[in-house]
């Protein structure tokens, strides 16, 4: 029961994240949306590892690695967004400017 709830929460987070990633134009919000999707996938992976009683250590290792990867990607993305802000005083991509 708990595992199912976890899996569904993961799916919900992925859905919210994908919607925000495609809908939002502000670059920082898109970076946040990326992190929400990532968290949803990790939650789902954790739920998948908890099925069948005994805990499976592999998803733990995958999630920890995945968090490190997502952190580095977010750091680079935020650095690029900041550099873009300083270079062109814009928080969106040129094609998304109103």
């Amino acid at each position: 029961m708990n595992v199912t709830v976890l899996g569904l929460c993961g799916a919900l987070l992925v859905g919210i994240g994908v919607f925000a990633f495609l809908w939002q134009r502000h670059l920082l919000r898109r970076v946040l949306a990326f992190n929400v999707i990532g968290s949803g996938i990790f939650l789902y992976l954790g739920a998948a590892g908890a099925r069948g009683g005994a805990a499976d250590p592999v998803p733990h290792a995958l999630i920890i690695t995945g968090i490190v990867v997502a952190l580095s990607a977010s750091a680079l993305a935020v650095a690029l967004v900041l550099a873009h802000l300083h270079a062109s005083s814009a928080t969106r991509l040129p094609e998304d400017e109103p």
Binding site: F21, L27, R30, F34, A73, L76, A77, L80, V81, A83, H84, A87, S88, L93, P94
Partner: peptide, 18 residues
């Protein structure tokens, strides 16, 4: 580090992250 290259890199990153 030019504005154009940064915008191109961010666009690349948005696609690549997805």
């Amino acid at each position: 580090g030019s504005a154009g290259a940064l915008a191109a890199a961010i666009r690349y990153m948005v696609f690549a992250l997805m």
